[in-house]
Simulated assay, not measured.
Amino acid sequence: MECVFGLVGKGFALVVADTSAVHSILLHKTNEDKIMVLDSHKLMGASGEAGDRAQFTEYIQKNVALYQFRNGIPLTTAAAANFTRGELATALRKNPYSVNILLAGYDKETGPSLYYIDYISTLHKVDKAAFGYGSYFSLSMMDRHYHSDMSLEEAVDLVDKCIIEIRSRLVIAPPNFVIKIVDQDGAREHAWRESIKDAPISAA
């Protein structure tokens, strides 16, 4: 019952993911961080098979770092998204990865951006997106409440609405979520949303 979703606001991009590591009917852990910091101004939220997710996101992270090391400048968010899409497309014809990705970043020239990349290497630049069973509810909430010039406070409030909806609607809902943002100050963790029984949803 994985849930990964994100949106672009006024001067920032935000990615949210559940933190459950699940195999079949077993829950292995509830503090799995599925949002990787690629570099100082990029985030990659991923869902899919645990092994594919960990291996592929680490592979992308190391190659983004290698490019910066070799050339002295970082990849733009668009370039990182196209590189990621290319690697998924290459793997699709050999040994495909079962992984879906939301890539968020901030560039000085273009500002914040969010890219949707699925397991068959479809790439789209979007304002909001979601993967997993939680997408049925998070997308409908974002369709209703999202607007392009949202402040960070409005975006976090919308995220809380999405999490509440996911928890109340899914039969087996993830107990915990992590929220990370990227803006001109860099990529960082913003908050951890623990289950309702452990902590109030409004706690940051």
Score class of each variant (00 low, 15 high):
Ala187Pro: 02
Arg188His: 04
Arg169His: 06
Glu87Ser: 10
Glu153Arg: 08
Asp149Phe: 11
His124Val: 07
Val178Ala: 09
Ser98Met: 11
His23Ile: 13
Leu27Glu: 09
Asp157Gln: 13
Ile117Ala: 00
Glu194Gly: 13
Leu139Cys: 07
His41Glu: 00
Phe69His: 10
Lys125Phe: 01
Asn100Thr: 12
Glu165Ser: 08
Asn71Met: 08
Val15Lys: 11
Leu139Arg: 14
Glu154Asn: 08
Ala203Asp: 07
Asn176Cys: 07
Gln55Asn: 11
Gln184Thr: 07
Leu139Asp: 12
Val64Trp: 01
Ser135Met: 06
His124Arg: 15
Ser121Ile: 05
Val99Trp: 00
Glu194Val: 11
Thr110Tyr: 11
Pro74His: 08
Arg169Phe: 02
Glu165Phe: 01
Ala130Cys: 06
His147Tyr: 13
Leu66Ile: 12
Ser24Asp: 14
Leu75Ala: 04
Gly48Met: 07
Leu26Ile: 13
Ala91Met: 02
Ala104His: 02
Ala89Trp: 05
Leu158Ile: 03
Ala21Asp: 04
Asp52Ser: 14
Ile101Leu: 15
Tyr146Asp: 02
Tyr146Val: 02
Arg93Glu: 09
Gly51Lys: 05
Pro96Ala: 05
Pro112Ile: 10
Arg193Ile: 15
Val171Pro: 00
Val4Glu: 13
Ala129Thr: 05
Ile164Ser: 14
Tyr59Gly: 02
Asn100Ala: 12
Pro174Asp: 03
Asn176His: 12
Ile196Lys: 15
Val15Glu: 06
Gln61Ser: 14
Arg70Phe: 09
Lys29Ala: 15
Gly134His: 06
Gly6Cys: 02
Leu114Tyr: 03
Gln184Tyr: 10
Asp52Gly: 10
Val156Ala: 08
Leu103Arg: 08
Ala191Thr: 12
Asp160Asn: 12
Leu139Thr: 09
